[in-house]
């Protein structure tokens, strides 16, 4: 997609879809839920719940296809130009990081 085309999310299963069909959750780091059993779990959960990198540049973020197939996507989008550079299924991303589902 070229710069300035508006926000079209190229869904891995359904093809190009208007961003208005989706709801936005936030930074894809939310996939990496901390381990609650470690000694530093409290601080890890405070960081997880409340602190964000909030980059000006390529941002990996979670979008939910609420008006479509209800899948979660990890969209890599430039926060200054709104250009979408990559779209993955969130379940694939989570599994590639060792999650079971």
């Amino acid at each position: 997609m070229k710069k300035g085309d508006g926000m079209i999310i190229n869904h891995p299963l359904l093809g190009p879809r208007d961003a208005a069909e989706f709801t936005y959750l936030g930074d894809a780091s939310l996939i990496d839920r901390p381990d609650g059993m470690t000694d530093d779990a409290l601080q890890a959960f405070i960081d997880y719940a409340y602190l964000r990198d909030n980059v000006a540049g390529n941002h990996r973020e979670l979008w939910f296809h609420e008006q479509g197939d209800r899948s979660w996507l990890v969209v890599t989008r430039h926060t200054v130009t709104h250009e979408i550079v990559n779209v993955e299924l969130a379940c694939d991303v989570a599994r590639s990081r060792g999650r079971s589902k």
């Binding site: 508006g6 926000m7 208007d18 961003a19 208005a20 709801t23 936005y24 936030g26 930074d27 909030n54 000006a56 941002h59 973020e61 989008r77 926060t79 200054v80 130009t81 709104h82």
Partner: peptide, 13 residues
């Protein structure tokens, strides 16, 4: 608009 942005412009929806 509801998504992270530094663009100072939004979208049509």
């Amino acid at each position: 608009d509801g998504y992270n942005s530094y663009a100072q412009r939004g979208n049509l929806p």
